[in-house]
Design a protein around this nucleic acid. Structure first.
Lengths: 194, 194
DNA sequence: CAGAAACTGGACGCAGCGTCTCATTTGGTT
DNA sequence: AACCAAATGAGACGCTGCGTCCAGTTTCTG
């Protein structure tokens, strides 16, 4: 179905180029995707979800530690040379393509935000949605606007600040997560087949 | 010098189009700007700085109120139909154009971050840089990734959270700002002629 | 096995790219 | 006022890519 072999320069792909490299006619491409942006988005979706098919937020230990490792994982993905160019190409397209933006929102961003939000809620955080935004916002601010790199140790301090901003009750050491769902492990939200 | 009359569709301008509309030859355009992105950036710079030439953070009243009005102003600018398309076009280009990203960073983002940071520092906030990031991050997260609109009242709650995350000492009601500089008014950092 | 659906290959007119030449302004210098 | 050099306007150049269209295959499916 998705014959998106390893493309190289995502910033400047063309319908004709993809067609040629995929050994497929332009007609067929247009039958499935309206734009190169849509192709890139599907490729991104494939890469982001292929193994797991879901967003995973660790929910085994202490809240702060879980958030920290999630932040670290997010940063790792954003700066991974394999993913970064593709991600940037898609976010660039999103700025001018409303339909693509909606797809991106529904299938990548919301699942991510929801997963964090859920973890925060079960960590006894008030207004977990706001906290999730507070957590992710600065990360993407740095990444999208290229204000500065992610220095080591920042993730930890950042998580501390976010928790200070929104923590109200003390977190119970035994998580409610394990009761709410069969798996006592991580908070997962599937984004496959939406 | 900059004969950038009111262009309309920033997402899809072309060198040829600009040249024609400006009554100028392509050659002349290329002499000044290497890409359409660079043209858009200069146009953005013109619009953002023409009247004031500086980033202004109110510094007259209470810290929270000042930040709130700054946030409100930022949101207003981001959603202003006059500015939004141009801003989006430029941020899109930034994703793939390193040189442009550096310009954007130096002449627009840093001045903004510095201005807020300064205001926060004089408001007795520890780690004002982190606080500034915490303040702006979620705003741009919403705007760039189009996760959701800015509902009324959000700015206020957001500022409260940011202050809770980073406030340590009590803010003196009389600002140090008025002593530090002649003008007792706003925190300004010039971005002209950098 | 026949009809329908999907596919390839390529042509089409068009827009824009970035480079180039060349004739014409324009401005500064004596 | 006359001159020269730099900057400019006009547009041609080959090229790439767009999005659509049209045969002529192949492949699915009943």
């Amino acid at each position: 179905m998705l014959s998106l072999a390893g493309e190289d320069r995502f910033g400047s792909i063309s319908m004709e180029g993809v067609a040629a490299r995929a050994g497929v006619s332009k007609q067929t491409l247009y039958r499935t995707w309206p734009s190169t942006g849509a192709i890139l988005f599907d490729a991104l979706l494939d890469r982001s979800l292929s193994e797991s098919g879901e967003v995973v937020v660790p929910a085994s230990g202490e809240l702060a530690a879980d958030l920290e490792s999630f932040v670290a994982a997010t940063i790792a993905e954003l700066t991974d040379p394999t993913h970064e160019p593709l991600l940037r190409a898609v976010t660039a397209d999103i700025q001018t393509d409303e339909a693509l933006a909606a797809q991106f929102h529904d299938r990548l961003l919301m699942p991510q935000l929801s997963a964090i939000s859920d973890r925060l809620r079960r960590g006894s955080i008030d207004d977990p949605d706001a906290a999730a935004e507070l957590l992710l916002g600065p990360i993407f601010h740095r990444w999208l606007l290229r204000t500065r790199a992610f220095e080591p140790g920042w993730a930890s301090a950042h998580v501390q600040r976010v928790l200070r901003a929104t923590a109200t009750r003390a977190e119970p050491s035994a998580e409610i997560a394990s009761k709410k769902r069969g798996i006592p492990g991580n908070t997962t939200i599937s984004t496959r087949n939406l």
